[in-house]
Structure formats: C-alpha cells, structure tokens
Design a protein around this nucleic acid. Structure first.
Lengths: 109, 109
DNA sequence: TATACCTATGTAGCAGGCTACTTGACTAGC
DNA sequence: GCTAGTCAAGTAGCCTGCTACATAGGTATA
C-alpha cells in the first residue's frame, strides 16, 4: 500500500501543505505559489495513490459564506509515512510551511 | 534580454542555489535533493536563456584534487533580476537555501 | 447590464522534471 | 582482476508541471 511511492518536490510540498492545515486546493495554491494547473492535477494523483483523501464541503456552508464549495483533503496513514520519508530527501521543506490557524468545526466538515 | 522570463519553482531553486554559492551541478544536486536528470538539463536551459553562464574548471585543479573537472556557473545580471522577481512568487525559497562557505581562490577559477 | 474582480475547481497541450542508465576516472577490498 | 563505491556530467523516454483558458456564482461599480 504505497510503501515505495517516491514524491516529486512539488508533490511533497503539496502534501506538506495539506498536513500543515492548508486543506483545500485554493489555499494550497496561495501558500505555495503554485498555479492551479499544477495543484489540482497533482492532488488528483495523490488521491489516486491513496496518500490523501477528499470530500466535498456541504453546499449549505458554502452558501452561507457566499463562495464556491471547497473540496477538503486530509492525509491517509500512507500519506503521513510517505511525507515523513520525503523529509529526508527534501529537508528544506519541513521548516518552510507554517502551521495554519486551526479552523472552526464547521469549516472542517 | 530575458526580461519577461518566468521561472518554474525548480528553476528558481537552482538559480537561488547557484547564487548562494552552490556553483556547480553536483553541489546543486546535493543541496536541493534534486536528481541529475533534473539539474543538468535545467542548467542548460538557464544558460540558453542567459540567466547563468558557465566555464570548465582548469583540468590541473581537478587532477590535483583527484576528481572529475567541474563546470562552474554564475548568475548574469539578467539572472539576478529574474531571481529577485521570482522571490515575490516563491517567498519560501529565500530563507531556504543557506549561503555557502566562501571558497578558496583556486576553486573558484 | 456590462465590465471587472474574487473564490474555487478544473482541463488541453506543450514544456519541463524524473527514473534509470551511461561514461569515465579514481579508490578500496578481497 | 572483480566488484563496489565516490565524484562529476550527461541523456532517452515517460510522467509531471505550467500556461492559458473555461466554468460558475458572488460582489462591486459605473
């Protein structure tokens, strides 16, 4: 189950960002500076490889906050071990992505 | 002359590394963790776009140090301005690559 | 009521990045 | 003389990343 998966630098950055609390595509884009054409396909592949999993935000929440619905991600167990392994390869990454402010319960659902 | 050149994240990392004193391919590989198949073609393109320029180390120096000759790079003026511009796009880069110990005169030639 | 901007996700097609391998010289162990 | 390891540069071919654009609802403003 995704033991030998090796991450590209970009994929590792995105995983690191999700792990740090940037839990949907747009926030990952803002934090990393990577464009949408990089982030969204990369996140699809990360999900395909079972390093992250996603679910759509409840439409009511998006309506209440007057914005499009978000697709939230979180790391799987394989994702966490793969990310930790990648820190040996890309030691720069670890200190670079600050931990996000914790969200309200509502925003996490 | 390379005013509107936009750097990929990887290209920016490599430029930043060269600027910080990792002035040949192998040292850039070690510092960034990027593989040779990324670094060498990328440096060719950076040179093609006149952001860096290269020269081969004197064979005598390589012989004296019992290792293969190195190909040394340095930033052009366009390379420096392009790198500075890229810091706005990739703010993480700036603090990530430490400045190298200054080299001996001989090793720089 | 058109134009512009913001949040958010997404894709086509081409340029760039990565894996695996090569070359070559030199060092070390057996 | 064989195998393995190190430093250094490089390439073929496939996979990934990026530019530019699309979609869609919201706000703002003129």
């Amino acid at each position: 189950m995704a033991e030998g998966v090796k991450l590209s630098h970009t994929a590792a950055m995105i995983l690191q960002a999700v792990n740090a609390g940037y839990v949907y595509g747009f926030s990952v884009m803002e934090m990393t500076g990577l464009p949408s054409g990089t982030v969204y396909p990369a996140m699809r592949r990360l999900e395909r490889d079972e390093l992250i999993l996603s679910h759509w935000e409840d439409q009511k929440i998006a309506d209440a906050e007057q914005r499009p619905p978000r697709k939230y991600y979180k790391l799987t167990r394989a994702g966490k071990t793969t990310l930790e392994a990648s820190h040996k390869r890309y030691p720069l990454l670890v200190k670079l992505i600050p931990i996000e402010e914790p969200m309200h319960e509502k925003e996490r659902v």
